[in-house]
Write a protein that binds this DNA or RNA. Sequence first.
DNA 1: CATCATTGTTGTCATCGTCTACTTTGGGGT
DNA 2: ACCCCAAAGTAGACGATGACAACAATGATG
Lengths: 197, 197
Amino acid sequence: MSRSRPYHHGDLRAALLESAERTLREKGIASLSLRELARETGVSHAAPGRHFKDKQALLDALALGGYERLARVLEGADEPALPLQPRLTGLARAYLAFAAENTELLTLMYARKHEPGAAERMAAGVDRTVGVFERVIADAQRRGEIVEAAPKRLTLFTGAALHGIAGFAAGGILDPAEALGMTDDLIHHLLHGLRPR
Amino acid sequence: MSRSRPYHHGDLRAALLESAERTLREKGIASLSLRELARETGVSHAAPGRHFKDKQALLDALALGGYERLARVLEGADEPALPLQPRLTGLARAYLAFAAENTELLTLMYARKHEPGAAERMAAGVDRTVGVFERVIADAQRRGEIVEAAPKRLTLFTGAALHGIAGFAAGGILDPAEALGMTDDLIHHLLHGLRPR
DNA sequence: CATCATTGTTGTCATCGTCTACTTTGGGGT
DNA sequence: ACCCCAAAGTAGACGATGACAACAATGATG
């Protein structure tokens, strides 16, 4: 019983990040405090300071982890063999599912409060995420399935539609399940436009 | 000189909101404290409590004001006589301009942290904003300029594209000026889709 | 086995949001 | 014209937080 924890935790940094992400998911970012985190982890209130210079530094690390996971999810969900529309729909579904399950984290990821150092690594995370979509667009363009225009811009447009829906879901304007449910429609309208043909 | 301010401020509530919005714009929401606000307004640290039960109550009031202004901007920018594309482009420009000038406020508006009472009034603000776009969509549909489909959904899609771009701009992924600059393209792709015709 | 950089701890500080008890003020009812 | 009382502002206290500094335990490296 009395197994007093060893003086050194082993991997406090990881433990803190894990606990932080759970809190973020369950109670929201507002009730995420370094001291509470320390308490949950059974460590003194100043211990986190050894691993994160700042509260912001921890948030940055959290966001960075989010980008990592998001990229993996998207890369895993991409099926390059499919034709444009189902391929894009699959990716969209993956993104919206991630957004629904990691609302607060996603908000954090897009929050640009990041400290000088982390900003670049954050940009890398964005690039990797965006890259998945960019590849799909470029592939489709090569096959003539998509209008001739700067791929960057088309990707941005696609991303905006998704990000917008995710944002509505995060803001409570739209039910997350409903958002997921309208993915097919979303991609359809994205590809075919609002104008009748 | 020694004009000691009268015991009663006159309209402290309004003064606080104004000061808060300036701080929000200039220093971000992170450095918005009730006490600092009170100091700036030359009033004791507990005075804001008379007008706002909570810090959240003040934020809610701020968000509500934002919806009011946004709705006015959009309603003012709408030119019902125009054909669909230029009409929508004008509205989009107005929205993105508002978003660029009120980044933090917009974030607050979409933040769904709101207290029980304010949630409904917040929803009304959303409806009024969305209503402007919905009307445009419905009008266009009546004229056959837009595909037959649930107008709500088409509006949501339109809103998502805009909100997404605004979000990117707010997150630093996109330069606000650049976002404004690509409005025409955005609406074009929205109406015509990514597929070649 | 001695050393010393890492990692954790305790203690302190300023700030913040909120609550309670007290004071000033000015307008409405008699 | 006056009184009274509710509204609006003040002063002080409390607990929580993020940050920092000084100190202690630990264990890897020489």
